[in-house]
């Protein structure tokens, strides 16, 4: 044991001479790493200075935050009437997320087909639909909510439309990527039997992309129940309206109760959609008949 470790020890300089790259990174690599880290941390410090961070503001803020958290305990809606209002708002949030996601998927699917390289009509249409999707995605859900409130007035319907529009952009992109990643062989098989373009898409591509798309839709339903909680802040329905109101009126126990409600709702929906996803993916992985 001792002899062998001594052996390696005596070989070490020779090994270092033979394989220098394994003992120390080359200086260009090191310089690149140091440069990137310097620039990033420089920007970090500049950001603190530019955005008026100061130690006493942070410390006093954390102190106040501690007091707020103490005020939040125990969670308490205040009264039974409020409790039922909150539950109704929660149902509204789930409905907004469900309907918004589903409608977005229905609208985005044809756009995704047109935006995918292998199923599009022509290059120009593909390019245009890609840019359209990019533009839609650039605008946050909250901004869409403000725009839709102009059309259908305050209320949850504006929220449904807002979630729908902002998700069309994301879904269109994801769907078209899933379609582009589909295997070409089934399509070739259908061409060889004389199938038309629509047959190719229906029997060659759809069965491949459907489980992927269903998984994505479920995932977005989950994430929309989270983002559905905030669109109420601008007046587009759901629990966010009450949450913002309780924060502004400093009803801290009701705030923590609402947060707790949201956590429970998200956990339940996560569990449900995980089961559903397993069912869908499991079915697609059954051996083909």
């Amino acid at each position: 044991m001792k002899a062998s470790s001594q052996g390696i020890g005596s070989d070490l300089p020779a090994l270092k001479a033979r394989y220098p790259e394994h003992f120390a990174a080359s200086w260009t690599k090191r310089a690149a790493v140091v440069g990137v880290v310097t620039v990033l941390s420089g920007l970090f410090l500049f950001g603190f200075w530019r955005l008026d961070f100061s130690l006493d503001r942070i410390l006093s803020g954390i102190g106040k935050l501690g007091t707020l958290v103490l005020l939040m305990l125990p969670p308490n809606p205040g009264s039974w009437a409020k409790f039922f209002t909150f539950i109704h708002a929660l149902a509204e949030t789930v409905a907004i997320a469900f309907l918004g996601t589903l409608l977005a998927a229905l609208v985005a699917f044809p756009i995704g087909l047109v935006a995918a390289r292998n199923t599009t009509v022509n290059r120009l249409v593909q390019f245009a639909s890609r840019r359209l999707l990019d533009g839609i995605r650039g605008i946050d859900t909250l901004i869409w909510a403000l725009l839709w409130i102009n059309v259908v007035g305050l209320g949850p319907f504006a929220g449904v439309l807002a979630i729908m529009t902002s998700d069309i952009g994301t879904f269109g992109k994801l769907f078209s990527e899933a379609i582009e990643a589909a295997d070409r062989k089934p399509v070739e098989g259908i061409i060889s039997t004389g199938g038309t373009r629509l047959h190719q898409i229906r029997f060659g591509i759809l069965p491949q992309v459907f489980p992927v798309i269903a998984g994505q839709v479920l995932y977005f339903f989950e994430s929309n129940t989270r983002s559905g909680t905030i669109i109420g802040i601008v007046g587009a329905g759901g629990i966010g309206l009450h949450l913002a109101e309780q924060i502004r009126t400093l009803e801290w126990q009701a705030v923590s109760f609402l947060v707790l409600l949201i956590l429970v709702m998200v956990a339940v929906i996560d569990a449900l959609s995980a089961r559903l996803r397993r069912a869908i993916i499991g079915r697609s992985q059954q051996p083909p008949m």
Partner: peptide
């Protein structure tokens, strides 16, 4: 799970 806007609303009161 808690959206960032909600954190922001609470932090505004503290900070």
């Amino acid at each position: 799970t808690v959206p960032e806007i909600v954190f922001a609303l609470i932090f505004i009161i503290a900070f």
